[in-house]
Write a protein that binds this DNA or RNA. Structure first.
Lengths: 208, 208
DNA sequence: TAGATTGTTAATCGATTAACAATC
DNA sequence: TAGATTGTTAATCGATTAACAATC
């Protein structure tokens, strides 16, 4: 594994490769080739091999790739084998849907708490076992439980100050669903955005 | 506007420009420059100007750009000025969160109905005014109301067959939240993916 | 062995960055 | 006018595609 400084496009394809490989495994396929993967990815055999070459020699000439081996390798690179704890900020509709629907464990995360500022929500659970705490007690909680990452499912305006608070108390990995460009001083901080509105506008563009 | 065949990276930045411009307008800023926009976008003045040059001459030397003019121009390019109707497939947690939270109207869409296969949900409303119909009646409904686009908030396995049905009856623009690579024969069909799991894995990658 | 398929190198393509003349 | 800032051209950089020798 010569996994130093991967190009961004490769990083973004990695989860997709992983998903395709799981699909193959679940339908009983034990080996595959760059050509077959390219088909699943709507890509080219050339690109698949070029991408994989970032990780050393994963295949065998004349044979192809072993599906489980790739899953294991990519799972490792993607960090799925360590469990990291995560908190959720903003227990509204979207936060609740994610807490209840999304399989954090499958991706190596464990959701340990939720936060909100609504008096009605504080003290209730967002899903069985995950309590909603007062956002005022965020720093206190982080100090004690040291979550590594946070999901931001709050409003556009609330997101920026909240992100700053999180980073300041050491939560530097942010999964941002808020409709905003977060700006953070801390150069260690990583923000991964899921912005519905950007996405629907791209669809909208293609409709015209 | 010489808006023929935009490069994909530009298309994906367009919604972000739009958001930054709205932000400026809402804080009372009337004119801006490539430098200021670059800062908001975490980009460079050069890239901003290069991007904008795809749309003709939007600015003025020595002055910069007029914020409202850009908003209007980009809104137009993004198709936000026409209203298109949309249906939602899969009225679970996520579908419900989107139906209730997401401001479709702001982006030029109107949500007109939801579909599900759960007998308990059928006949109820996903939000005031938006009824949940039996997925069996999808084709019938589409025939009558001709929605142009659909949001897919259903399970990984249900997504592919459902996408095929939609495309077959003429709904060719799909906003896909399901964790799958949709494969569609129809070359007119456009799929825009919002895959939470791909995104969390990218975050996960950076955490290792 | 012969056929298949990799890993890698080289060629092409496209996107970003830099520079600057045009001009408000 | 002088200063600011665009629009555009050219240079650089990086990603994708093609080709093929290596080898299982």
């Amino acid at each position: 594994m010569k996994n130093h400084k991967l190009p961004e496009p490769v990083i973004r394809r990695l989860p997709r490769y992983y998903r395709c490989l799981e699909l193959l495994r679940d339908s009983g396929v034990e080996r595959t080739s760059s050509g077959k993967l390219a088909e699943l990815m709507s890509s080219t055999a050339s690109q698949v091999r070029q991408d994989f070459s970032c990780f050393g020699k994963l295949g065998q000439q004349g044979y192809g790739y072993n599906v489980s081996k790739l899953i294991s390798e990519f799972g490792d690179i993607l960090g799925m084998k360590t469990v990291r704890s995560m908190i959720l900020i903003g227990a509204g509709h979207l936060g609740s849907a994610i807490a209840n629907n999304f399989d954090f464990e499958h991706y190596g995360f464990r959701l340990i708490a939720a936060f909100d500022n609504s008096k009605e929500l504080i003290g209730t659970v967002i899903r069985p076992g995950i309590e909603i705490y007062d956002i005022d007690r965020l720093e206190e909680f982080v100090e004690e439980y040291r979550p590594q990452a946070a999901v931001l499912t709050l409003t556009q305006t609330a997101a920026q100050p909240c992100a700053e608070r999180l980073v300041r108390c050491g939560v530097k990995y942010l999964w941002n669903f808020a409709n905003t460009e977060l700006k953070l001083e801390d150069t260690d901080a990583v923000v991964e955005d899921v912005r519905f509105s950007d996405s629907i506008l791209v669809l909208s563009y293609y409709m015209t």
